[in-house]
């Protein structure tokens, strides 16, 4: 796994260049280029169907692109052989929109799975302690022995984050962390993201629509519209001079005619 603790701060940890993706005949991502630096919280935002989740899944190596390049610590991941990609992906924590938990396992077993598979720990008591630590971090200490089907949507999302954090990855990809959570839990999750970044140096790539969350956590935002980046910079810049579409997003101003824009 290319986990380079001495990776220079000025070099991007993840570098996306000219990424193009099609689903059938539809162009989903059109020439995306962006950098993610170590310890940064990058927020990808944009309207529904703008290609945010697709971009996130490309960055974690879950989707094949039509063309372009994505490097992680300098290692190209597009077109990488499956077993080598799997090694790179051990350095990723991926928290899915609906949790992505395995229904046949308890929440604790879900979190323990990557630790057992890749963590190299045989001591079950230590695995249990790690699982409890991760679950308590996301406020789910009581849910260790529950099945995912017994959890609410927000709890599944948090359990998914606990599993993503199981191996202390240098980077976590998080799809819609706050969607479906109550405001208290959502802000708690934002604080957790900040804590993990500040205390453990975890880098985050987050896809979200939630303005409060964006203002709280984002070091940098990338705004996607119809598969293209139309803004890349700080939240302050986005709100003040992000251009018409970005400013409309932050001002929560609806389109005059809702059907005038079609999702890609």
């Amino acid at each position: 796994m290319p986990m380079n603790a001495n990776w220079p701060d000025d070099k991007p940890m993840i570098e996306v260049k000219d990424l193009v993706t099609h689903y059938g005949q539809s162009l989903i991502l059109d020439g995306i280029s962006l950098d993610v630096h170590k310890g940064q919280i990058l927020v990808i935002l944009g309207g529904s169907g703008s290609g945010k989740t697709t971009l996130l899944k490309h960055m974690c190596g879950l989707h094949a692109a039509t063309s372009g390049s994505i490097t992680f610590y300098g290692q190209e991941i597009i077109g990488l052989e499956e077993d080598r990609l799997a090694l790179v992906q051990q350095g990723f924590g991926i928290a899915f929109q609906s949790g992505g938990l395995f229904n046949s396992m308890t929440v604790g077993e879900n979190v323990a799975l990557p630790i057992r598979e890749y963590g190299g720990i045989r001591d079950e008591a230590l695995i249990d302690a790690l699982v409890r630590m991760k679950l308590n971090m996301v406020g789910l200490g009581e849910a260790q022995h529950k099945l995912p089907s017994e959890l609410s949507g927000g709890m599944k999302k948090r359990a998914g984050l606990a599993r993503a954090l199981a191996l202390d990855p240098p980077i976590v990809f998080f799809d819609e962390p706050s969607a479906g959570l109550d405001p208290i839990m959502a802000s708690g999750l934002d604080q957790l993201i900040l804590h993990l970044r500040d205390l453990l140096g975890v880098t985050f790539v987050v896809v979200t629509h939630e303005l409060e969350s964006i203002r709280t956590i984002a070091d940098e935002v990338v705004f996607l519209d119809l598969g293209k980046i139309i803004f890349n910079g700080t939240v302050k810049d986005a709100e003040e001079r992000g251009g018409e579409r970005v400013e409309q997003f932050f001002a929560r101003r609806p389109d005059e005619v809702i059907s005038q824009r079609t999702a890609v």
Partner: peptide, 18 residues
């Protein structure tokens, strides 16, 4: 200190055995 703050809930919660 920060790490211990993250750890605090897990330290305070006894292990639940089924």
């Amino acid at each position: 200190q920060g790490f211990m703050a993250l750890l605090e809930p897990a330290l305070a919660t006894p292990a639940v055995r089924q």
